[in-house]
Design a protein around this nucleic acid. Structure first.
Length: 280
DNA sequence: GCTTACCTGTCG
DNA sequence: CGACAGGTAAGC
């Protein structure tokens, strides 16, 4: 999916366009895109709601409304684009969320994994799982908290741990691989095997990678588009992700692809050692 | 933990 | 045709 930087770029793009605007009645082309409440009630209840603010929690975009909030998760292939008009036929268009006055948010999603939640109270947020997210890695985790969090989970391997949205929220496959590469840490290392220096190196690598991702307008490896339908540029700066066989930018050895935690994982086996001081 | 499932598409 | 794709929940 869009990971934290992509969702943040969308949030920043949309905020000045939709704050204070009022929704009309949504049009659903795929009712499964609405996760809560039932589609009919969703359309009925969103109509007439006004957007008051735009937030983000991990990979969720949260549109604060005059009553409740609209939460959006793009999962793997979701897009949320603001347009005055639907421009060309889009076979993956799943929902149109119009504003009174003409423009609309167009929610597209090839794989149908993404979803929309209209949440009006704490109980509904709880059911949707929004309050089960860990702290937002970009907004809510400083270096000392990161050290403390890592030390609570000594037995976990780093890659699945960093991908676990209940541990910290926002990281996905691309930015985890890039962060571990920059920190020189193997994705299969146990959290408890890291020195304090390594944990801090990882923390600052994560911060730098996320910030550069945001500054580049996100990573359009494939499907990602921003709030204006434009591609990001960070895919051109990736050091290892998706670059099997190409030279490591640090040492020149070919980038390796492995499977860790069931996910395709890119790393430099020379720069990122599994055992400290070992040759392999 | 790992595997499977959810979907549709691209690439080799 | 199989492998793989930015995510995550559910079931061993």
């Amino acid at each position: 999916m869009p990971e934290l930087p992509e969702v943040e770029v969308i949030r920043r793009g949309l905020a000045p366009l939709i704050c204070h605007k009022e929704f009309g009645r949504p049009v659903l082309l795929y009712t499964g895109a609405v996760r809560h409440p039932a589609p009919e009630k969703f359309c009925q209840n969103l109509a007439g709601r006004r957007v008051e603010n735009l937030g983000r929690a991990g990979k969720y975009l949260r549109l604060g409304l005059d009553r409740g909030e609209l939460a959006v998760h793009l999962r793997m292939t979701g897009r949320l684009v603001y347009r005055e008009n639907a421009d060309f036929p889009d076979p993956h268009l799943r929902a149109v969320l119009p504003f009174t006055g003409g423009a609309a948010l167009f929610f597209s999603d090839m794989r149908k994994f993404g979803g929309l939640w209209l949440l009006e109270n704490r109980e509904e947020r709880r059911q949707a799982g929004l309050d089960r997210l860990g702290p937002d890695i970009y907004e809510e985790v400083g270096p000392e908290r990161f050290c403390a969090l890592i030390r609570e989970r000594r037995r976990s391997r780093l890659k699945p741990l960093l991908l676990d949205q209940h541990f910290v929220a926002g990281l996905g496959n691309i930015y985890v691989d890039e962060s571990l590469f920059r920190a020189g840490i193997h994705p299969g290392r146990a959290a408890g095997s890291l020195s304090r220096e390594e944990i801090l190196a990882l923390y600052w690598a994560v911060r730098a990678v996320l910030q550069e991702g945001i500054d580049c307008g996100g990573t359009s490896a494939r499907d990602y588009r921003d709030a204006f339908g434009e591609r990001g540029a960070f895919q051109d700066r990736l050091a290892v992700y998706g670059r099997r066989g190409r030279p490591c930018p640090r040492c020149g050895a070919p980038v390796t692809r492995a499977v860790v935690a069931g996910r395709g994982t890119y790393l430099c086996a020379r720069c990122q050692k599994l055992e400290i001081g070992s040759k392999k």
